[in-house]
Structures are given as structure tokens and as C-alpha cells.
Design a protein around this nucleic acid. Structure first.
Length: 304
DNA sequence: CGTATTTGACCAGCGC
DNA sequence: GCGCTGGTCAAATACG
């Protein structure tokens, strides 16, 4: 379970890398051509030379990305191996209280599909249905270490009603209730990951019985499908728990949520990659920054 | 002044 | 039964 979630997180990060790489290449090509059109007055020799330079740079960047992806793959497989070994150990020790403790802290980034099995085991031992009653989902959000607010922006309004330092994690855990609708039963716990304190682990319990405020404001009138916030995924799922990794600040939760259960399928992977690539290339900030970086690089090469 | 957050107290579950 | 722990409550406090 935990491993799977970790794999998911890593996968999404990887998708982001891949997609951005493809968009980089595309943008680079575009920029190369635009450079050409912009500098028509310059002698054709210089133009060709510059074009070659840009192409070479393009190649270099592509290779760098390739290398990065390869090393990432290697790291990921190592990590998965490690986590496999760890979870084998983690499963055996005595489970204190509700599976929460081990899931949330020791397992941190890990936790879900296996946490569901843990829940099942526990529910066999002690048929306490509170474990089952609420759908549990989990989200991981990368934040600044200096940011102590424990705030996870997921599109809903939350009211903090408690904070506690837990045994396994020196970082305090914050307890939130959904404050947008008085009758909404959803609760959320937010705590920094033990392993990586720049990652906030948000655990959602229950399902929202209302639209997210952001959607209501937008009044897009779209289907109920889009009513789920980023990170919170109280949709019908195969298991009682769902994990999302928000550490790459994925803009659209819908796709992530919908594809999550089949994330391992090549279709879903392809879809994710395409979606991320398109969202990246559509992002004016990203393209502007990219253009600035490339032009800056070009000028510096020219001046040399 | 109203609302949100903080924080110590309290409660319940669990292991010994 | 007792102690430990996580979760919740509610008075106090902060903030706009």
C-alpha cells in the first residue's frame, strides 16, 4: 500500500518532468523559429549560425532531461525496493490503536492501498465500523519549511478546531472541520511528513455534501464530477482510502482523481503526460519564463 | 464587535 | 484499573 502511494507520488512527479521536458523542447523549437522570423534583417549567415546554436542548445537540454529522467527512474526503483522491504517489517509490529498511527507517520508518504488492507484486518479483529464509516483520502502538499501554518489549499473552507503533537511525529498535527457548510461532516488532519518536513500530509475523512466554494463562485454549472477539490477525493473509490500527491501543485484535481485508480495503466499515464504538458504549455508564466531564459542564454552566447 | 485561531482540559480507546 | 495516546471541546485570545 504505502509503496504504491509512494510510487504514485513519484510517478506524478515523473510525469511532470516528462511533460515539462516535452514542452520545453516544443517551446525551444518554437522559439528557434520565432527567433528566425524576428531577425530577418540580420544576414542569413548569422541567422543560420544562431539557429544552429539554438538547435545545439535544444539538443543539450533534451539530453540533460533524458539523463535526469534516467537517474530518476533508477532512484525510483531503488526507493520502491527499499519501501518494499520496509513495509514488510512495518506490517509485523504490533498495531497500536487505529491504523492511523502507523499510516500517517511512519509510513507517511506511503500509505494508502495498504492502509486499506490494514483497516480491513483491523475491522476483522474489532468490528468497529468507525473505521469504515468515512471515506479516507490523503493528499501530499509540498510547502516551504518556514511555513508553519499547516494550511493545505484544496478549494474548501476549513476551520481549525485543534492541534496536537503526536508521539511519532514531533511536528504538530492540526485538525480541521469543513466550515463552508455547517452540515458538512468532512474533517481533515494536516501534519508534516516525518521523512520530508517540507511535505504536508493532509488526511481527509468523509465526503463533502456540497460543492467546493471555488466552484460555486465560478458557477461553471458543470457536472457534479468537478465538485471535488484538489487533494480531497471523496469519490467512490475501489478502496477506502485514496492518495493524491499535490507536491507538484497539479492544477486540475479532476483528472488526477479520475485517473488515480488506474494510474498504472499506460492510457492513464499517457493521459496524465498529455494533460500536464498541455497545462504547462498553456501557462503563460511558464512560457514567459522559458522564453526569458532562452533569450537570456542566447544573448549571453552572442555577446561571447 | 464578530469571527477565526490557539491551547489546555477533557474524553474515549487501547495495551499492559 | 491505570497510564498513554489521539481526538475533540471550549474558553481565551488574536485579528480584521
Amino acid at each position: 500500500m504505502n509503496i504504491l502511494d509512494l510510487g504514485l507520488c513519484l510517478k506524478i512527479e515523473k510525469k511532470a518532468m516528462n511533460s515539462s521536458s516535452s514542452s520545453w523542447v516544443d517551446s525551444l523549437d518554437l522559439n528557434a523559429s520565432s527567433t528566425k522570423s524576428l531577425q530577418l534583417e540580420t544576414p542569413s549567415g548569422a541567422l543560420v549560425e544562431e539557429l544552429n546554436r539554438v538547435n545545439a542548445e535544444n539538443k543539450k537540454l533534451t539530453e540533460m532531461l533524458k539523463a535526469m529522467c534516467e537517474s530518476y527512474n533508477a532512484l525510483q526503483s531503488q526507493l520502491v525496493d527499499l519501501m518494499n522491504k520496509n513495509t514488510e517489517k512495518e506490517l509485523s509490529p504490533t498495531k497500536k490503536r487505529k491504523s492511523e498511527t502507523s499510516n500517517n507517520n511512519n509510513g507517511n508518504i506511503i500509505g494508502n492501498s495498504e492502509s486499506s488492507s490494514t483497516d480491513e484486518e483491523e475491522s476483522c479483529k474489532k468490528p468497529r465500523e468507525e473505521i469504515i464509516k468515512a471515506k479516507i483520502s490523503r493528499a501530499y502538499v509540498r510547502t516551504e519549511l518556514s511555513d508553519t501554518s499547516l494550511v493545505v489549499k484544496d478549494g474548501y473552507q476549513w476551520r481549525k478546531y485543534g492541534q496536537k503533537v503526536t508521539r511519532d511525529n514531533p511536528c504538530p498535527r492540526a485538525y480541521f472541520k469543513c466550515s463552508f457548510a455547517p452540515s458538512c461532516p468532512v474533517k481533515k488532519k494536516v501534519q508534516r511528513s516525518v521523512d520530508d518536513q517540507s511535505v504536508l500530509v493532509a488526511t481527509y475523512e468523509g465526503e463533502h455534501n456540497h460543492l467546493p466554494p471555488s466552484q460555486i463562485e465560478a458557477t461553471s454549472g458543470s457536472s457534479r464530477l468537478g465538485s471535488v477539490p484538489v487533494g480531497s477525493t471523496p469519490v467512490k473509490s475501489s478502496g477506502p482510502t485514496i492518495t493524491l500527491d499535490l507536491t507538484n501543485s497539479i492544477k486540475s484535481s479532476d483528472e488526477a482523481r479520475n485517473s488515480k485508480p488506474k494510474l498504472d495503466s499506460p492510457e492513464a499515464t499517457q493521459y496524465l503526460v498529455e494533460h500536464m504538458a498541455s497545462s504547462l504549455t498553456k501557462d503563460p508564466n511558464f512560457t514567459a519564463a522559458l522564453a526569458a531564459a532562452i533569450s537570456g542564454r542566447m544573448f549571453s552566447t552572442n555577446s561571447n
